[in-house]
Design a protein around this nucleic acid. Sequence first.
DNA 1: TTTAGCACTCTGGTCGTGCGAGTGCTAACG
DNA 2: CGTTAGCACTCGCACGACCAGAGTGCTAAA
Lengths: 349, 349
Amino acid sequence: MGFQPVMDARKRRILEAVTDDYINTAEPVGSRTIARRYNLGVSPATIRNEMADLEESGYLEQPHTSSGRIPSEKGYRFYVDFIMKRKPVSEDERARIRRTLAEKRREIDLIIEETARILAHLSRYAAFVLSPISRAGVFRRVEILPVDSRNVLVILIIDPGFVRTHLIATGRPLTRQQLAHIAQFLNLRLANLPLSRIGTQLLREIKSELDDYNSFVDATIEAIAQSLEDRHEEQVYSDGQVNLLEQPEFQDISKARTVLEFLAEDDALYELLSGVVETRGVTVTIGREAGHPSMNLCSMVSAPYEVRGVPMGALGVVGPTRMHYSRVVALVEFVAENLGDILTRILVM
Amino acid sequence: MGFQPVMDARKRRILEAVTDDYINTAEPVGSRTIARRYNLGVSPATIRNEMADLEESGYLEQPHTSSGRIPSEKGYRFYVDFIMKRKPVSEDERARIRRTLAEKRREIDLIIEETARILAHLSRYAAFVLSPISRAGVFRRVEILPVDSRNVLVILIIDPGFVRTHLIATGRPLTRQQLAHIAQFLNLRLANLPLSRIGTQLLREIKSELDDYNSFVDATIEAIAQSLEDRHEEQVYSDGQVNLLEQPEFQDISKARTVLEFLAEDDALYELLSGVVETRGVTVTIGREAGHPSMNLCSMVSAPYEVRGVPMGALGVVGPTRMHYSRVVALVEFVAENLGDILTRILVM
DNA sequence: TTTAGCACTCTGGTCGTGCGAGTGCTAACG
DNA sequence: CGTTAGCACTCGCACGACCAGAGTGCTAAA
């Protein structure tokens, strides 16, 4: 990172031209095309020579002998890191994003959902949003509300401003007082702890203490424990997977299946995105860099979003490696910032 | 319904054979094949004659002259209504369904989600579950819980045993007492009303009354109103859409896209399933019967699920018209019953 | 160092061709 | 009179040939 390999200006321009063209047309691009469409002031023959060099150093590749060139992963990498200019999000799109998010200003889950939707819609790829909470939060308090004689609603309140509720069947009726006791005890032990500190062992401790105190709340406390140590189920919101079917690289149904099957697994997505929370700014992951075979044909553009400088979640766009990086990078950045702003406004820190 | 068109036994057996074979192989089936694979005791020539008749009366069709026959929608209809025998769910599968649902016995949303998952998995098609609540419920009470100075959690408790929570930014701080007042007032007006009775006008009334009472709770009450009259957002759980890509009829990506795009819209699914709640038992909807162009190539097997005889929601499987009806019908029926049972056990009526 | 020219390669589309599966019809059969 | 065997006919599809177009690498000239 930050180290820029040596490459003379003309090679850069050619790599840029090949990449741009391929991104737009999805066809291998030849020297003639470049000479015609981009005026580099040199002849196709010269371009051919340069392209041969670029291929040798691994930035371009040929799908088959005597066909045009396409960028390799390394080529995309270079393009993204050193050549590409972000294509600013149009005022139209900005307005639209702001409006959409502002409309649903009331409920966090809806905002997140809407974010995934608009991101998918504007990128024309698949979009994912990892909802906030996670490690950054602090446990504030728990409330337990009787719903009926056998069900209680456990409400976990996380600072800043998030709430997780769990409807739990208790098995046996519990009185309001009993519930209050349990809640009180839990709050005593957990209040103001960072979520990252609340691990399985602490919960086990608390559980055993509560067992002594009142043996038949077992089920309840266990469920609470579960919900806290939970791998944050349901926290990845996604949209636009079908958009990928528009891409020529996924006309082959077996390729499409590999990707869509992968993207349909919540766990896989969670894993993909959870690492993003720790990054800063927009990250582009190209093809095999993701380290997952099903994603070999895909790239991901991702960014964390922050509330007052604290990263709270992440979002991203997944498309073919031949992705409109310049557009998507800017889009992801803008949406991440915007989501952060909206959340900051809603949440009281 | 109930009226069985005249059709002699041999024609029935042939229609059955054609349908079964086509369902299994996805290839148009010819007279020779039938004579070989199913021993009807007659020669291919006879079968040809019968098939010509069946085609004339609209039960079979030929993709192109001098190719085998495939069932028409009318053919499937007859097959489903009068010929097919449900293929009982294997003991293995039963056990698996019961176990899966029982595991997640604590939280209704998880149960619903898991139901969609197992249904998709066992049917190998796409599965949908419309979560309970809906018209059948009775509003029991609302609780409003302060989360922090600007956010409240509105908890709607519906009988039987369902809970909807909404995290709402109030704009201005509200005291605990104010919240209690509002809740009390709402409960006075809404408690024990069937949800079907709580319409936009009633809510508007209440809102205006509350406006008088305390003008700045506007946002809150409006949000509550919204959440009640809401088109039940997020209530359709789906899974297994990618399974459809396995089907030969969707190898053509453009066909696959039409269907998957349709199935990706929550609203469309909601519409599709919400009608099912009013039906009894398993319903099979074949191709264009669904009345939606995107579903022309698909069939749906659906059923409501009930808690103590009251229909609470619905579930269904969507696959190609060439669907394993005998298997799926039995599966859907079993899962619907099971889900009903599980919910009955959890919910206190 | 760049460019023009040229021979070569490879892909993708089009066109026949042949094969196999299946039909409809006719005539024979029980 | 229903059933069956036989036969000519029809398609769709897979296969191979063929051609055009795009693009390359190389060589030699500018």
